[in-house]
């Protein structure tokens, strides 16, 4: 393992550990409002200052990290499974199935998602409960993010169809569905793992994008997306540098992920 990959691993572990320790590191919590000190700069009581309605920014960053770092792998899991089912199965079946699956993924890739998402958000009630918003964000990410992985898995499925062991299993009279679940799917595991890990940083960024648009996790729950929203009203960069901490953290985590994965890709490929 190279030096930089080790550093990246350590950084990721540190971020995860600190975010898990949020309740003891920032006992004030992410929702408690300190009206006396709204919009305050960093101080001994509030290390990163407070937001417009007096909530401790340090606590919100920690809890936001926790949510973002939970959402991204969860969405990666659902999108990888979808990709395996749609792409892998269609590729394994081949012929018209594979062509249909590729047509659907093409369609998915070409839809104006931003527009659709804003429409969907507009259709939802204004004040959805925070838990529900987390679920919706997770589903949106997972359901939209599966197409790239599906293409890869379709190719994998196609190459597995023509292997000797699949022919041998078919000649043993094993049923089609069982053949796929028991004999084909386990052979997709290396590709599935690679796709899972690769999509995590992508989903972290997507969640941030949704958050900035106000489509992500709902108040008062923080996430990197909703924390970045604060930067909207910022007049000058030099004025309140502590407001950039969530952005810095996002960049550091995504970069670390890419660094850690850069080698794994080569192994999986």
């Amino acid at each position: 393992m190279s030096f930089w990959r080790r550093v990246a691993c350590a950084v990721l572990l540190l971020v995860v550990a600190v975010s898990l320790g949020a309740s003891s590191l920032a006992p004030a919590g992410y929702a408690k409002q300190d009206r006396e000190a709204a919009g305050a700069p960093p101080s001994h009581a509030h290390w990163l200052g407070t937001d417009e309605i007096g909530r401790d920014r340090f606590a919100r960053v920690l809890y936001g990290t926790r949510i973002s770092l939970f959402l991204a792998p969860a969405a990666a899991l659902i999108s990888t499974l979808l990709a395996a089912l749609v792409g892998g199965l269609a590729g394994y079946l081949g012929g018209a199935w594979a062509r249909a699956a590729m047509a659907i993924t093409d369609l998915f890739l070409s839809l104006p998602w931003l527009f659709l998402l804003i429409t969907v958000r507009a259709l939802l009630p204004l004040n959805v409960s925070p838990a529900f918003s987390v679920l919706v964000t997770f589903l949106i990410l997972g359901l939209l993010g599966w197409t790239a992985a599906a293409r890869v898995l379709c190719a994998t499925g196609g190459s597995l169809r023509n292997t000797d062991f699949v022919r041998q299993a078919r000649a043993s009279g094993i049923r089609g569905t069982r053949l796929f679940w028991i004999h084909v799917l386990p052979n997709m595991k290396p590709v599935l793992y690679a796709q899972f890990w690769i999509s995590i940083p992508a989903f972290i960024l997507s969640e941030a994008n949704l958050g900035i648009l106000g489509l992500g996790v709902a108040e008062p729950l923080p996430s990197w997306g909703s924390l970045l929203k604060e930067l909207e009203g910022l007049v000058s960069v030099g004025e309140e540098p502590w407001k950039f901490v969530p952005l810095l953290l996002l960049v550091i985590v995504v970069t670390s992920f890419q660094l850690v994965l850069s080698k794994q890709d080569e192994v999986a490929a």
């Binding site: 000797d164 062991f165 022919r167 028991i182 004999h183 052979n187």
Partner: peptide
């Protein structure tokens, strides 16, 4: 070796 499933 290729007729046996490597993953099972």
């Amino acid at each position: 070796l290729s007729s046996l499933n490597p993953a099972l």
